[in-house]
Structure formats: structure tokens, C-alpha cells
Design a protein around this nucleic acid. Sequence first.
DNA 1: ATCTTGATTGAATGCTCATTCAGTGGATGA
DNA 2: TCATCCACTGAATGAGCATTCAATCAAGAT
Lengths: 247, 247
Amino acid sequence: MGIFHCGMPQSDLNLHQNSVNRDTTAKESSEKDLVRTQSPANSQRTLPRELRRLQLIESTIDCIAKRGLTDTRMADVAAGAGLSVGIVNFHFDSKTTLLAETLRYLADEYHQAWIEARNESDEDPAKQLLSLTRMNFEPRICNQRRIAVWYAFFGEARSRPTYSNLCQQLDDDYLDQMRTLFGSLFDDGNERRAHRASLMLMALWDGLWQNILLNPDVFNTDEAVRACEHWLACMLPEHFKQPDNSA
Amino acid sequence: MGIFHCGMPQSDLNLHQNSVNRDTTAKESSEKDLVRTQSPANSQRTLPRELRRLQLIESTIDCIAKRGLTDTRMADVAAGAGLSVGIVNFHFDSKTTLLAETLRYLADEYHQAWIEARNESDEDPAKQLLSLTRMNFEPRICNQRRIAVWYAFFGEARSRPTYSNLCQQLDDDYLDQMRTLFGSLFDDGNERRAHRASLMLMALWDGLWQNILLNPDVFNTDEAVRACEHWLACMLPEHFKQPDNSA
DNA sequence: ATCTTGATTGAATGCTCATTCAGTGGATGA
DNA sequence: TCATCCACTGAATGAGCATTCAATCAAGAT
């Protein structure tokens, strides 16, 4: 768990040597700042193994978001990092493992965010549901680049057990936690009700992600959070207030 | 609009000559029966152009669902229909157009189902919302094969404007219709509320589809419909009843 | 200054696949 | 029966791409 988050020295190196790859929509221009700050590392020819791997994974995300999974070549990933073709095979066994590690990286990142969101709202189930919801739409988690990659993998999930296995266990775990949270908010202790509420809220999260990916004009993350708050207020009026509708 | 539904003679030919391709989960074994019934067409060497195209598109759906978009080859599509390699390029200009036509086929099918669902519930907005919801989870529309294909395209949507353009206009139209339906159910005539409700219900549909694709164990279409009904009852208690919770 | 270790390069290799097209064959009409 | 018209076949072609690896280079250790 957390192989990409394990105290690795994430100094302020600029891992994006090739700026051509960074032309995503302006709104998200500040994500992953840790790998962008100016630094002499720009011209550094070699980098410690783990840092280079991280950079290549980020470049993979860029490529998938910009060109789609089918049009993502090893050479593109390397070029996106300003390096030469052979580099990817040197750090990852094969394209297959590169993609698997990319998915794992995203899953890990999400998992960390989940844990943080739960920890920051101490013991109060209602607060935890709210902060989990907000976490789902934080720019660092929910942005066009990352969502595009998630959906690219979803499309392949059925055919590549590796992909679904990687997320299945986490998903089950999340559902379980949600059930517990909802369970303690429904006073009737109705298991089925808590189960259904959990599925619904998680489905709502997913559906809103999808809309943010496909209809960014109609939709944004603030609107998404408000929709979820609205839903919570409908489901559990004693525990949640309707969000501010002024906007 | 509707190029695949335009009075083309959809006789009871068995378009699936190669049964190897049909091993999806047993539950969905009865979809697209029109192209499976036993008939001498099984051994027919030639078929009218439009019918062959239809068969190849269905084979494309099979391939994408089973192997993923990245691993779908022209030869696989041909083999899935029991035909030889050159056939696909004979009926479609290129792989690109084959995929675009496949997406258009699904979009069309969905669009037809949408219209039917609206027509069958005469003028009553509440009934129409219900039947649209049920339509979304009918086996012919919502099954692992088809959802897998939708998601494969979603993953590529950002990078291929062709794909998103194809659906964008329809989506906007659906959203518009939903706003009107909700608008006439909210007595306060609050536009914003109707807008948000529309987005939420459509997001819920999408999120439930996603769960049906990725977690078929936890999830099924009946559960999905009930979740939506539950949501409708929460949002508009005067117009909808809570679904039967006995199951 | 030299050695050692490991990262990086990029030309070369060989495989996979979309696409082509000359040839085959079945159906329909004369 | 023959001719015409298409649907269809599948070997051949060549472009595109992942992967390899010998050579190069950088940085730290001695």
C-alpha cells in the first residue's frame, strides 16, 4: 500500500521538463505543484529511480488524458518527460506494467485522500460524509486529466482483471466504511437503508465525475459538491442542512 | 438521425455466426434476439449491405466488451462475425469510422429508447421520469456489453472530438427535457432547482451504470431502478412513493 | 585523477496490424 | 446457360510501435 507515497524525497524538482505536455485547461494549471517549481533539476540528466518513475507516471497521465489510451505510445510518454525512447522500458518492464502502475498510483492517491478526509473530521459521521464528499471534488483528485485516465481504465476494466482487481478491494472497503457511517446516522438501524444510501452517494460521486469529464461546460466541482450536499440534506434532514442556493 | 433504425429489413437472421464471441454472462444472453434466431442465414455467404454492417457493429461491441478498445483488432471483429479479414474495410472505410459508427449506433439505440419511454407515459411528467429511469436500466440498453463500450468511448472522449460531438448534442437535449419535466413538478417554478435535480438524476443514472459495469456482484439493474425511485421519492414526496423495500 | 555504478541514449530489430486488391464465387436476370 | 454484379476472400504490403542493447555519460567513491 502506498508505494508512491512512502516518504520518498519529493523535493521541489521540476519533473516536467517538456512544457508542451502541460497545456491542459487553465483551471487545473496548479495541480501537482510539487513537480513543477523552478529548479536546476530542469537540466539534470539523471534522477533517482523513484523520482524518475513518478515523473514518467505523470507523463503517462498527461498522454492518456490528451491522446487517449489507444493513442498513447511509449515514445510519447518519454517525450512528455523530455527523455529518450528507451527510458520507459528501463524503469518499467513493459507498457503493460507502466499502465498498471499508473492506475495504482491514482488509486493510491485517492486512498490517501480518503484517509485524510476521514481523519480531519473527528468521529462525527455526518462531518465525515461531508468531508469525503468534498475530497472527491478537490482539484487535486478531481480534474480533467485524472478523470480521463480513470475512465480510460474503466473502459478496459472488464477485459483486464489486473485493473479491476486493483480497485475492487479498495472499492469494497470504501463501501463498507460508508455503510458504517450511514448506519450510525439512520436511527432505525436499518442495514438495507444504509447500504442503499451508500451505493447511491457513491454512484452520485461517480456520475458527477463523469459529467465533469464529458460536460465541463454545464458542470464544475462546486456544483457537484452542492448537488451532493443537497442529496444528503434530502436523505438525512436531521443531520444535514440544504446548501446555500444563492449561486 | 436513426440511420440504423430506418426501416431496414431486420428479419430474423442469425447475424452471429461465430458463437465463440457470445460467451458473455448468462443473464444477458437474450439481448438482440432479432439477430440470433435460428435461420438458414447462418450459412448464407452474402448478406445485404446494411445487414452486414449491423452485424459487424454488433461484433465490434462484443470485441470491445471482451477485449477492451486497445485490444480490438479489425481481424477480431471480422472473426467475431465468422468472416474474413478484408470484410471490415469493405463495409467501413477504416477502423476509425467503424468505431465512430459503433458509437453512433449505441447513441441512436439509446435515443430511440428515450423517445419510446417518453411516449408510453402520456403527458404526465412524473410518469415520464419514472419510465425514463426504467428505460435506462432495461436489459437491452443497460448490459455489461453495452456499458463496457460506452465507457471505452468515454475514456477517449476528451482526445477524440468526434466521439464527444456525437453525444454532446443529444446530452444537452436530454438535459433540457429533464429540466422541463422537473420544472413542471416543482410548484415553486424554481429553475435552478429543476436544473440541479436534472443533473443529479442523470448523474445518478450514470453512476449506477458504472457500478453495474465495475461491481456486478454488489449491483444489479433492479437495485439501480429502486435507488432512483428512492431518490425521486425523497426529492418529490408529493409525486413519488418510496419503492417497495421488501427485497 | 581514476574507477565504479547506474542512469540514459537512440539506432536497430522484429513483430503486430490496418489496409489493399486481384481473384473467387454466389445470386439474379436475360 | 451465360453474363453481370457484388459480396467476399486472404495473401501481400508496409507503416507503426514496443522492446533491446551496446555505447555514452554523470556522479560519487577511492
